[in-house]
Amino acid sequence: MQYVGDQTSLIQGLFSASTGAGGEAWLPFLELLRRVTRADGATIFLDRGREEAEVWTDGISCADAAANRSALRFDRVYDQEGLPAGVIPEGFVRLVKVRAGGATATLCIKRLDIRKDFRSTDRQYLTALTPFLGQAVETWSGLERQRSMAALTGGLAGGLGAAWVIMDLTGIVQEMSANARDLRLLAGQTVRRRLEFPDGDLALTFRTGFAACIAAPEVPQALFDPETGTDLVLRRTHLAGDPVVVATFRAPAELPDPDHFAAHFGLSRSESRLAALICEGHSIKTAAADLGWTEETARTCSKAIFTRLGVQGQTGLLRRVLTSAVTLGLGNCQAGSAQAQFPRPAPKGQP
């Protein structure tokens, strides 16, 4: 009965690890496997073709036993005497290799040679895990890819100053996007509570808009906070069958520091400082004062910027900058990069 109970615990631990985030998710399973088999170490090797293997270990490493794991046959439990020629591990080992989608996973347990060899029961534990190991690793890899894509999407949204908040029909916050609290308007907001705004006029406008959204679900409610320059749209919808109100926020995108701004657009540092101020809403006169320049110097510099970027006037510059990747945090291009090799559009009227 002890064997059946331990086997069940190991399989449950394996699938629990498969839904965890990051490589650390495998450590509790490896610790359990090591304890059940009384091993000194337990390791998982995940090989993806030519990429360097991902390795997770609890206790001592099994790297010497799995040094030539590409030569192992699939779904067979090996001991130290059955390993490929030339592989001589220290101590006693048991290991098995399985397919995991387009990758391979190798699970190994190890005892130091000052102890006795593994029991036949310990080998049976690996045999019992073999049909599930590949599926578990493939599930974990798929979830990791989804998390990476979600993080990429969140990063792009954050670069654009966008965030979302999900509320129930009473206004209680249920979920927030990862970057929501980065917006000035949402700083300090938490789940399980209603959104609170220190500005009384904005708070009243929000409550009025929320009530209108509940009363007329087909009509989105648009709000604006002039202090932070943040737009807000309230929509009533359904998520997984539950009625909710989704609030989407869009704050002004933050421009990078002058060096990155200059590298992205191929401007000098002085030109990038002036361009950034114009994009923040400054006139040529106020930008010149901020930089300590004469108005004539700023005007001459602005004309050079417009020519270099192929735009006409401050409106064209604003459109060019705010629709570029520089607001997404992708503008850290170095001289000679692929981005710098693309030709800039010529100003209208020039070849």
Rank of each mutant, 00 (worst) to 15 (best):
K348A: 13
V173D: 08
A105C: 05
G336D: 14
P252T: 07
K348G: 04
Q146A: 06
Q2C: 08
A67S: 09
V87W: 10
P256E: 09
T315R: 09
V311Y: 03
L322G: 05
A289Q: 15
L202Q: 04
E280C: 01
E90L: 09
D257E: 15
R35Q: 14
A103H: 04
L223W: 00
H260W: 06
D117V: 07
V173W: 04
G49K: 01
K285C: 00
E144P: 01
T104Q: 11
A163N: 00
A253Y: 07
I60N: 09
E54C: 03
P84E: 04
K116F: 09
T127W: 02
H260N: 11
H282R: 12
G59R: 05
A128N: 11
G241F: 08
L30F: 08
N332I: 07
I278E: 04
Q146P: 00
T127P: 05
R145K: 12
E138V: 04
T228D: 02
E254A: 08
G188L: 11
D259H: 10
A136C: 09
G209K: 01
A325S: 13
S120A: 09
A262G: 02
G200H: 03
E31W: 02
R50S: 11
L14K: 08
Q350V: 04
F45W: 13
R320Q: 13
E90D: 15
G313T: 09
Y3L: 06
A240Y: 11
P345A: 06
I278V: 13
P84Q: 02
A178V: 09
D47S: 14
L32F: 04
T106R: 07
A276N: 06
G134H: 07
D117Y: 03
Q135V: 10
K116D: 13
L322D: 03
A42M: 12
G229Q: 08
R115S: 08
S283V: 10
G154W: 01
F45I: 15
L33F: 06
W293V: 04
F224Q: 06
L32A: 15
A203G: 04
P351G: 07
Y125V: 03
Y3S: 12
E218Q: 12
A335V: 10
G292F: 05
D47T: 14
S120V: 05
P345G: 08
A338W: 13
A338G: 11
A63R: 15
F29R: 01
F265W: 01
A288V: 10
G329F: 14
F74K: 07
P345S: 12
H260T: 14
G331Y: 02
F306H: 13
L185F: 01
P347N: 07
R181Q: 14
D40C: 03
C213S: 14
S141K: 11
S324I: 02
F118I: 14
R115K: 11
A251D: 03
Q221C: 03
R273L: 10
D257K: 10
M167P: 12
A128G: 08
M167W: 01
A136R: 02
T286E: 00
D225H: 06
F224R: 07
L27Q: 13
I109P: 06
S61L: 02
S270C: 05
V55M: 14
E175T: 01
E296R: 12
